[in-house]
Simulated assay, not measured.
Amino acid sequence: MSRKIFTEEQQQLLRQNPYIYSVTDTRINLTKEFKEIFLAEYKSGTSPRKILEDHGFDISIIGERRIWSISNHIRTEYKKYGEFHEGYRPRSVPAADAS
């Protein structure tokens, strides 16, 4: 399955959302604030699609596959680090000291 590429126009539309930290032709990076909102709403039983729609994300641009990827990435980041990072956490950034 190929990766969906965002056109320049779609990238511009996505950048208008205050919860998007940055956008490239293949990646959406979310703000720390949105990740916190997403996780709280997800834990209260709201579906990932509804959370994204309620916060101004255009599902027709994002695509169905990314809805679940976003959800998975947010939950995985929290489980792994216990907190959220603004944008994308590079693999070289170590987790916060647990002491």
Rank of each mutant, 00 (worst) to 15 (best):
R75A: 02
R75C: 06
I61A: 05
R75G: 02
E8M: 09
R49A: 07
T46V: 15
I59K: 02
T46W: 03
T26K: 04
R27I: 12
I70C: 02
E64I: 13
P90R: 13
T26I: 13
P90V: 13
T24M: 04
L52M: 08
R89P: 03
K4A: 00
H55G: 11
E86M: 10
N29Q: 14
P90Q: 12
Y19F: 09
N72V: 11
R91Y: 06
R49G: 05
I59S: 02
Y21T: 09
A40P: 00
D54A: 06
I37G: 01
A95C: 05
R66D: 14
K50M: 13
N72D: 15
R91K: 09
I59A: 02
Y21Q: 13
F57A: 06
L13D: 10
Y19E: 05
E8L: 11
R3F: 05
I5E: 03
S60L: 03
A95M: 12
H85G: 03
T24V: 13
R49L: 02
Y88M: 05
R27E: 15
W68S: 09
T46E: 09
A96D: 12
K50V: 14
Y19D: 11
T26G: 03
L13F: 06
F34L: 07
L52C: 09
M1V: 10
P94W: 08
M1R: 01
R49E: 05
L30N: 10
R15K: 10
W68C: 05
E36T: 11
R66G: 04
Y88S: 10
L30C: 07
K80G: 04
S47I: 10
F38K: 05
E36L: 04
G63W: 07
V93S: 07
G45Q: 09
E83Y: 12
G56H: 11
V23K: 08
N17I: 12
E77Y: 04
T31M: 09
Q16R: 08
E83M: 14
P90L: 13
D58A: 10
S22D: 15
L14W: 11
T7A: 03
E77W: 04
T24K: 01
E86C: 05
P90I: 12
E33C: 11
S60F: 00
S92V: 15
P90F: 11
Q16A: 07
Q16C: 02
E36C: 00
E53C: 09
R66L: 15
L30I: 08
R15P: 00
K35R: 04
L39P: 02
D54S: 07
N72T: 10
K50S: 13
K4Q: 08
E77L: 07
F57H: 02
G87F: 11
R89Y: 00
S71E: 14
Y88C: 06
F38N: 08
T46G: 01
S22K: 06
R91F: 15
R66F: 12
